[in-house]
Each structure stands twice: as structure tokens, then as C-alpha cells.
Design a protein around this nucleic acid. Structure first.
Length: 453
DNA sequence: GTCTCAGGGCCACTG
DNA sequence: CAGTGGCCCTGAGAC
């Protein structure tokens, strides 16, 4: 890592544009070891390269004896091949890059993409050196410039989030394709003094950070009602989204609308991230390999879902809960068009009620804290939280719409509809998943599996 | 024609 | 004895 300021500008440029140093300062996104080059889709270490190759070639099927969230670092990576392989897939290693014919040598079809990935890294380094003086930086693999054209016509509007066309860091599982967020991720050098403890710099580190898997490091980071800092590099894939939360941070749950809103990530940022990731994915595909509308919708759902999981995990209120995996049956299917129609109706009603951001956040919490969920152990706690948020919402509506005394009740009346729609969406997606229509290895399919297992 | 570099194979080592 | 991981070989694509 380099401190830099104008006086050492040239030195910084020299060391950061050097290809060797570019890779030397990158850690394997699977185990955090030193990378040896591009392997099966992204920069990984020699060890994970070999492991991934053997796993795919020999069609290995591993099992995890723990909670499918084993820590992954150079010292412990051998302990659980299941979690290691899952993480390989999660960070974007590609099975298809392992040659079925075992032919040696040559370049694979990803060659041009590897090149572009390198170029993006260099652009990113250049951007950071020229726009962020006197700042300690640790590179992630994200890039800054939207060099690839967007063919995602479903999206409208624009975003100020820098885009990347880097196709390799669009994770496969948890976010399978969730590649990097757009923004640079500065990291305090003091976190990186010991390579043995240094976790990989990963795209979506911000999203991963709240999931179990790197307990030691994660506990050093104080969570609060506010979203955890984007620059936190420690992460772990949400192998099991419903494992009990294990971080006993002592935070004071917020309960007023202002406190709740302060803790919120900007919705537009989440939208921008999803949009940027989809654009990257679409841009990285060949002309005849573009995602169709349904695939785009699935990926949007997957990434939005990931953002929501992050939101819930970051929520101090949610951290008080203990949750276990359970079977949740859903109802028989409905058509996509009727779901869209119902959703549009719901949005229209909420707009008519002039829902503001504070109220929206309260509604999100009310959906999250549902005492009817069978797996919740501390039902009383859920009910108490629900009451607190209810009070907060009521105060907010009375405060902002004193003449509209029924707004609070009207908002609450929308919740059953929200839950009903979500259940039917879930059912619909599960049916499509059974038909093989959903992309594999996505957070979405993982959650569907969990709920229907 | 030469160089690059990513995938595959080999094999000593480990538990 | 199966799995690991470091090292070397191979060969298609880039130049």
C-alpha cells in the first residue's frame, strides 16, 4: 500500500501501473492467498486454481459438516472443500473454463475478457491516483469506466454510479453475477499489515461483509444502526442465509423514523448498483448470448434480494433476532402478468398515499419483523419491535400529515398485500426454477431452495 | 516467428 | 491413499 501525495506521485504511478505489482497487491478472492494469475475466470492463487480444476475434472461433490459458512483463508481452506468450492463459484470461477477434453496449452475463450479486466484495473488505478490525493488506497477489482455499451433496454433513467464492464467479478452465487459495485473502495492500510489475516479484496465486499464466515476479522468492525462502511473488506458468502447471527454488537436499536431513515442505504444507490451490474453482465455477453427479459428480471430480483439481505443484516433491530431454517410452503401459482398487475396496483395505492422515505423504511421493517414467520424463536421480541416501528410510523404520519389522520391505517393495510404478492412471486419463481428457467447459482435460487427444502 | 500466459500434468508432501 | 499445492509443460492467440 502506498501513501501518496503530489510529492510521491510519480513513484506511485510507477509502482501501480506495473503489471507485477498490480497482481502482487491482489489477493485470491477465494482464500486470500497471493494470486498467481488468471485462472478459470479471475485472478486466483495457484492453490485454488488446482483445487477448482480437480473439483470440476473429477466431478467432486463435497459436503459441509458445519453451517456451510466455514472460514476461508490460506490456513483453513483445506478444512472444508465444500465451502471452498462454493466460494470458488461464488466469486466467479467458471466451470466451463475447465476443458472437458483436457487439452493443454492455448488460450481459452475468455482471453479478450482477461485483457479487458486488466485494462479496467489500470484505468481504475489511474482514476484513483488522479482523483483522490493523499488517501490510502487498497484496490478492489472493480473498475470505473463504463466502457462497454449497454444493451439493457429494459432499464431507463441514469445513474451516477460508475460502471464497470468487468465480467469476472460479477459473482455467480451470491450475487452470482454481482460484480463490483461501482464506487471505489478505499481501505485503511492498517487493516492490511498481515497478509495471513488479510482477506481478499473482493467485489461486493460491502455486501458480503455482514454474512458469517470471517468471524475474527468481522468482529473488529463495529456495526451500528448505520450501514457498515462500504470499504470494509471482510466478507463471506451467505452460504446459509438463515443461520443465527453471531455478532453480538452492542448497538442501540433505533426506533424513531428519523433514526430508521438515517440507518438506511439510499434506495437510489441500490437501484443504481443493480442497474450497473446488469449492464455489465449484458455488455460482457456476446451478441447472441444476451439475457432475455425473464433472465434480466431474475437477475434484478436476485440482486435486489441481495441488497435487501444486506439491509436486513445491517439492521440493528434485525440483529436481535435468532432465526432458524424452516419449511415454508407457498400457495399455488399465478401468472406473471397478474403479479405485475397486482404490484402496479399496490404502487399506485402507495403513491396515492404520498408515501415518503421515512414511511417506506418503516414499512420495510414491518415486513421484515413478521411474527407469523414460523422459524422465529423470539416471537415476543419480534412483536415488540413491530410495535416500536408501528409507533414510529404513526408518529411520522401524524407529524407530516396532521390532516390525514387515516394515513397510518391505510399504510398498514397495504402490508398484507405486500406479503401476499411476495409469496406468490416466490411460488412463481420456484415453479420456473423447477422448470430450469432460473439461472443456477444465484442467491435467489439458494433462498428458494432453502424455503422449499 | 516469437512471446505471452492460462489450462493441464506431474509429483513431493501431508494428514 | 486421497487431497493439496508448487512447479513446469503446452500451445492458441497476440504481436
Amino acid at each position: 500500500m502506498c501513501y501518496w501525495c503530489p510529492s510521491v506521485f510519480e513513484t506511485f504511478l510507477c509502482c501501480h501501473f506495473d503489471q507485477d505489482s498490480l497482481e502482487e497487491e491482489t489477493f485470491c478472492p477465494v482464500c486470500g492467498d497471493r494470486v498467481s494469475g488468471y485462472h478459470y475466470g479471475l485472478l486466483t492463487c495457484e492453490s485454488c486454481k488446482g483445487f477448482f480444476k480437480r473439483s470440476v475434472q473429477n466431478n467432486k461433490h463435497y459436503t459441509c459438516v458445519e453451517m456451510q459458512s466455514c472460514p476461508m483463508n490460506p490456513l483453513q481452506r483445506k478444512r472444508c472443500p465444500y465451502c471452498r468450492f462454493q466460494k470458488c463459484l461464488a466469486v466467479g470461477m467458471k466451470r466451463e473454463a475447465v476443458r472437458a477434453d483436457r487439452m493443454r496449452g492455448g488460450r481459452n475463450k475468455f482471453g479478450p475478457l482477461y485483457r479487458r479486466d486488466r485494462q479496467m484495473k489500470e484505468q481504475k488505478v489511474y482514476h484513483q491516483t488522479t482523483t483522490t490525493p493523499c488517501r490510502i488506497k487498497m484496490e478492489t477489482t472493480q473498475a470505473l469506466q463504463p466502457t462497454a455499451p449497454s444493451d439493457l433496454h429494459l432499464m431507463t433513467g441514469h445513474t451516477n454510479v460508475p460502471l464497470s464492464s468487468d465480467p469476472f467479478h460479477q459473482c455467480q452465487v451470491y450475487p452470482s453475477g454481482m460484480g463490483q459495485l461501482g464506487a471505489p473502495m478505499p481501505l485503511d492500510c492498517t487493516m492490511n499489515t498481515d497478509r495471513g489475516l488479510t482477506p481478499p479484496s473482493l467485489p461486493y465486499a460491502g455486501l458480503y461483509r455482514t454474512f458469517p464466515g470471517y468471524p475474527q476479522e468481522k468482529r473488529e468492525v463495529p456495526f451500528s444502526c448505520s450501514p457498515a462502511p462500504e470499504n470494509h473488506p471482510f466478507h463471506s458468502p451467505p452460504n446459509n442465509l438463515f443461520t443465527p447471527l453471531s455478532t453480538p454488537e452492542t448497538t442501540t436499536p433505533c426506533s424513531t423514523p428519523n433514526q430508521l431513515v438515517e440507518a438506511e442505504q439510499d434506495e437510489s444507490q441500490l437501484c443504481a448498483k443493480v442497474l450497473a451490474s446488469l449492464q455489465r453482465e449484458q455488455a460482457s455477453r456476446g451478441k447472441h448470448d444476451r439475457l432475455n427479459t425473464f433472465s434480466i428480471m431474475c437477475k434484478m430480483a436476485d440482486q435486489t434480494l441481495f441488497g435487501l439481505v444486506e439491509w436486513a443484516r445491517n439492521s440493528a433491530l434485525f440483529k436481535e433476532l435468532k432465526i432458524e431454517v424452516s419449511t415454508i410452503l407457498s400457495q399455488a401459482g399465478v401468472t406473471l402478468s397478474s403479479l405485475v398487475s397486482r404490484t402496479q396496483d399496490l404502487v399506485t395505492k402507495l403513491r396515492a398515499l404520498q408515501l415518503d422515505r421515512h414511511e417506506f423504511v418503516c414499512l420495510k421493517y414491518l415486513v421484515l419483523f413478521n411474527p407469523d414467520v414460523k422459524s422465529v424463536q423470539s416471537r415476543r421480541q419480534v412483536e415488540q419491535t413491530q410495535e416500536r416501528v408501528n409507533r414510529a410510523l404513526m408518529e411520522r404520519t401524524q407529524q407530516t400529515h396532521p390532516g390525514h389522520s387515516d394515513k397510518f391505517g391505510q399504510l398498514l393495510l397495504r402490508l398484507p398485500e405486500v406479503r401476499s404478492i411476495s409469496l406468490q412471486v416466490e411460488d412463481y419463481l420456484y415453479q420456473r426454477h423447477l422448470l430450469g428457467d432460473l439461472p443456477c447459482n444465484s442467491l435467489l435460487t439458494e433462498m428458494l431452495h432453502t424455503k422449499h427444502s
